[in-house]
Design a protein around this nucleic acid. Structure first.
Lengths: 332, 332
DNA sequence: CTGTTAGCGCTTTCAC
DNA sequence: GTGAAAGCGCTAACAG
C-alpha cells in the first residue's frame, strides 16, 4: 500500500491543501517545503494520478490509435510522438488496430473510457465514423500521416500527391518515358501517391499502359511481386516509381534476385527513406518524410486543443518532403 | 460532459448500487436490466475507468517499458503482447526508453504514478535497480526477451545461448571449420548468443581467431561493417554466424554490395527470422523466435500475478527456438 | 500562505 | 435483488 497525501500530512503536520499546493508547484513556506520533501522521500510517495485525474478530469495521457504497431513505419514515427508528448508531461496509451477496422472502432471506446485527454490516430479506415464517439465526448483528435475521405479533423501529413509528382521530375528530367508505378491501392497514402504519379505523367504527355500500373497492398510482397511482374514484361519500363517503404524493399529484393542491376537495367525512385537504403547499392533516390516534424507537429496541434481548449476549425497540415539523391537513375 | 452513473439513476429511478452491479455483471431483475441498457444507449454512457480505478485500485492497464519503440523487433513482439492483453480486457501504456537508461528509470516512476496493474519490460539496462520502485510499490513485473544480470524477476525469453549453439550445428555438420561471428557486445541477447557460438566452437575443438570475433552493437551498421571486415581478411572464414536481425540485414547488404554470392562464396546462419528473409535469395538459415508465444506467455505470467496476487518465486522461462532451413550453407 | 470542507464517479459494505 | 451511505486519493474553492 503506497503512501498517500494523508501520510505526508501525518508526518509533517500540514494540511492536505498545503501539500497538494506544493505538489502542484504552488508557493509554500521554505520550511514547509523542506518538511514535505523529506516526507516524500521517506515514504517513497508518488502522486496517485488516478485520483488526481478524477478530480481534474485530466489524465495527462494521450491515446494513440495506430493502424498496425507491427509495421516498421509505426515505430519510426511513434518514437517522435512519444518524445514530444513526454516533453509536455504526457504519456501514450497505445491501442493497436491490427489493420482491422472493427478493432479500431472498439479501441476508440476503450480510449474514451480511459479518459484520455486527446487522441492521435494513424487510421485503418478511410472513413471517419469510428471516431464519432470520441468527437462527441469532446476529446480532441489529430490524424497523423493518413487523412480521411469524409470527415474533417486536424491532420498532419505530407503532401503525398505533390511529393510523388515531384519525385517523377527526377526521372522525367533524365528523359525516361517508359515509367511504371507500384502502389498500394486501398490506403490513403498509396492512392495519393499513385495520383501524383499519374499527374506527372499526364503533364509530361506520357502514356502509362495498364501493365505499368501495378496496384497492390502496402507490403513487401506487393513490391516483390510487382517488380517481378514488371521485369517479366516484353516491353519493360526503363524506370519504376515505388510508392512506399515496404514496396521499395520488396522491389529491390526482386531486382537483386533476378540479377538485374540498377541503374543500368532499371532506374528507381522510392518513397519513405529508411536507414537500410543508406547502405544499399545503388543508393535509391528516395522521398524522405519529415517523421520527427510530423510527430512533433501532431503533438503540438493536439496540445493546443487540449490545453487552450481551442475549438477553431480543423486544419490539415501538409508538410513538404525532401528528395534524397541517389545513383539509381540512368540518364537516357 | 459525458453521462455518469447518476444520469442513469435519474433516468431509471434505480439506485447507484444496482446500476453499478449491472455494470459489473451482477444479477439484476430483467426489467431493470432493460431500463439500464436503454439509458446507457440513450445517454451514450461509457464507464469512467478513472473513477472505477480509484476505488478498485485496479486500472486494467499494463505498463510496457520498451527499450526502443523505433526498433522493428519491438513492434513485432508488442503486437502479440497487445493482442493478448486485449483478450484479458487490459490495455497497454507504452513508455519508450529510447535506448536510454535514464529515461527508462524515469518511465518506471511514471508508470507507478499511473497505477498500472503490472509492467512488462524489455530492458535497456542490464542491471535491475531501475525497477526497484515498482517492485517496492508491489507492482508485478515480467521481463521479456532480455534478462537482467543481478535481479530476479519473472522473465520470458528464448534460450539464446542454446539456440546459438544449436544453430552452429548446421555449419559444423556441413564441415565448416573457419567460422566467424558478428554479435552485439553489450546487450543481453548479443552476449548470450556470442557465448553459445563460442561454446559450440569449443566443443567442436575449433579455434576462433580474434579477427573472426566481430563484436559491435545491435545495428544494421554493425552487421554491414562487420561483414565487410570479414570479407576483407586474407584468410576469410567460410561461414558467418550473424546474431540478430539488424546484423543479418547489414551483413547481407555488404555481401550483395561486394558482389559475393552465398552460399558459394560464404555460408550464412542468422538470427531473428523476419518476413524479409523469406523472399531473399539465398534463403538464409535462420533461428526463429516464437514471438507470439513469447508475448502471450509474458502476458499470462503477468495476469497470474495480477489476478491471483500470486507471490511465488520469480520464474524464468526460456522458450525453444526453431531453425528455418534455407540454402545459404555450402557443404564443405 | 494555510486549513477546512466538499466532491470528482464509481464500488462496496450492510441493511432491508 | 435493491438502496443508503461511506470512501478511494486527490484538488479546489473559500475563509482565515
Amino acid at each position: 500500500m503506497p503512501a498517500t497525501i494523508r501520510d505526508i500530512k501525518k508526518q509533517t503536520g500540514l494540511s492536505l491543501a498545503t501539500i497538494s499546493k506544493y505538489l502542484n508547484g504552488g508557493n509554500v513556506l521554505p520550511e514547509n517545503k523542506v518538511k514535505i520533501e523529506a516526507a516524500i522521500k521517506d515514504l517513497h510517495y508518488e502522486v496517485n494520478e488516478i485520483a488526481r485525474g478524477l478530480v481534474t478530469n485530466k489524465t495527462r495521457t494521450v491515446g494513440i490509435l495506430v493502424y498496425s504497431i507491427e509495421s516498421p513505419f509505426s515505430g519510426l514515427i511513434l518514437t517522435h510522438v512519444g518524445t514530444a508528448l513526454r516533453k509536455h508531461g504526457y504519456g501514450m496509451l497505445i491501442a493497436d488496430s491490427c489493420n482491422d477496422e472493427e478493432i479500431e472502432a472498439a479501441n476508440v471506446k476503450y480510449l474514451i473510457s480511459k479518459k484520455v485527454d486527446g487522441i492521435i490516430v494513424i487510421p485503418v479506415a478511410s472513413k471517419g465514423d469510428f471516431l464519432l464517439p470520441a468527437k462527441n465526448a469532446g476529446i480532441p483528435i489529430v490524424l497523423l500521416d493518413r487523412s480521411l475521405t469524409d470527415a474533417q479533423y486536424d491532420c498532419v501529413r505530407i503532401d503525398n500527391r505533390k511529393s510523388a509528382n515531384y519525385a517523377m521530375k527526377e526521372l522525367l528530367n533524365k528523359n525516361h518515358k517508359k515509367i511504371a508505378v507500384i502502389a498500394s491501392e486501398k490506403e490513403y497514402t498509396g492512392r495519393e501517391r499513385y495520383n501524383g504519379f499519374m499527374d506527372a505523367m499526364r503533364d509530361a504527355g506520357l502514356d502509362v499502359p495498364k501493365e505499368y500500373q501495378v496496384r497492390g497492398t502496402h507490403s513487401i510482397a506487393s513490391g516483390y511481386n510487382g517488380m517481378k511482374q514488371l521485369l517479366a514484361l516484353k516491353d519493360k519500363p526503363t524506370a519504376v516509381f515505388m510508392s512506399n517503404y515496404e514496396i521499395t524493399l520488396g522491389a529491390m529484393l526482386a531486382i537483386n534476385e533476378l540479377g538485374y542491376k540498377s541503374p543500368d537495367d532499371i532506374s528507381l525512385v522510392g518513397f519513405d527513406d529508411q536507414i537500410i537504403f543508406h547502405i544499399l547499392k545503388p543508393q535509391v533516390y528516395m522521398i524522405e518524410q519529415p517523421l520527427q516534424e510530423m510527430g512533433e507537429k501532431a503533438v503540438d496541434m493536439l496540445m493546443k486543443r487540449v490545453t487552450d481548449g481551442s475549438l477553431d476549425n480543423p486544419v490539415e497540415i501538409a508538410l513538404a518532403t525532401r528528395m534524397v539523391q541517389g545513383n539509381s537513375i540512368k540518364e537516357m
